[in-house]
């Protein structure tokens, strides 16, 4: 029985196809999350500054940013990848492969991250903000010395959720030429009617989800209790 399992395509192709696909998925995820985090943070800062509940309410600016964030978020990831592929080609030089996927994934990720972060930052007790202001803090000092440090645990749990969400998205991106585990599950599993291959890859993704969630929780606890 067990020898029969090891005779399957999954194990025969393990070193040649599966391992590289795992690393490809990890690279896509790490880079899109990294860029998404950087852009998302900047957008979140703008949102929190201009929000009607924010530090310097500017409703018109807030509505403008909010509009674009919502619009990008309304694209299903797989459609977004296809929709921006001309732009991807200009920026990355190609619209297929791992590198080409990072651009649309980043594009899809930053609004999600920005929204999560906006919610976390605005959740900080208004009295703490008022206290900081009463001691003469500037808006930027309130942002970086009060809001971010206080919201850190909440930001971390938001990021954990986002990373897991986008692990699924990188797999989805495999359907439109991105490579990685998703592509392997589709081409070697689904299209070849190889259920073992497909479910084993799902199992790998499952383990990755567990690891990300575990790390997220660990980090959360660490910053929450200090």
């Amino acid at each position: 029985m067990s020898s029969a399992l090891f005779e399957t395509a999954f194990f025969k192709n393990f070193n040649m196809i599966i391992i590289p696909a795992i690393f490809s998925t990890i690279r896509m995820l790490v880079f899109s999350m990294l860029f998404g985090f950087i852009i998302g943070t900047l957008v979140a800062i703008l949102l929190v500054m201009t929000s009607p509940y924010g530090l310097k309410p500017k409703p018109s600016v807030y509505k403008f940013i909010s509009f674009w964030v919502n619009m990008i978020r309304s694209f299903p990831v797989i459609i977004l990848i296809v929709a921006v592929s001309p732009l991807t080609r200009i920026l990355v030089g190609t619209s297929v492969g791992e590198k080409a996927a990072i651009f649309p994934l980043t594009l899809a990720a930053f609004p999600v991250i920005a929204r999560y972060m906006e919610a976390s930052l605005l959740e900080v007790d208004k009295n703490i903000v008022m206290a900081a202001r009463a001691f003469g803090a500037s808006d930027m000092q309130i942002m970086f010395k009060v809001l971010f440090p206080e919201a850190l645990p909440s930001i971390i749990s938001g990021m954990t959720t986002t990373v897991i969400l986008f692990l699924a998205s990188t797999a989805l991106a495999g359907a439109v030429g991105a490579g990685g585990l998703g592509a392997v599950a589709l081409t070697y599993g689904y299209q070849r009617f190889d259920d073992v291959m497909m479910y084993c890859i799902v199992a790998i993704l499952f383990v990755m989800v567990l690891i990300i969630q575990g790390l997220g929780e660990l980090l959360y606890k660490r910053v929450k209790t200090r």
Partner: peptide, 18 residues
């Protein structure tokens, strides 16, 4: 600058939890 010369305390203390 002016606010430096005025301290303030609140009902719910408003301390930074972290």
């Amino acid at each position: 600058e002016f606010r430096r010369s005025i301290g303030m305390i609140f009902q719910n203390f408003a301390l930074l939890e972290r």
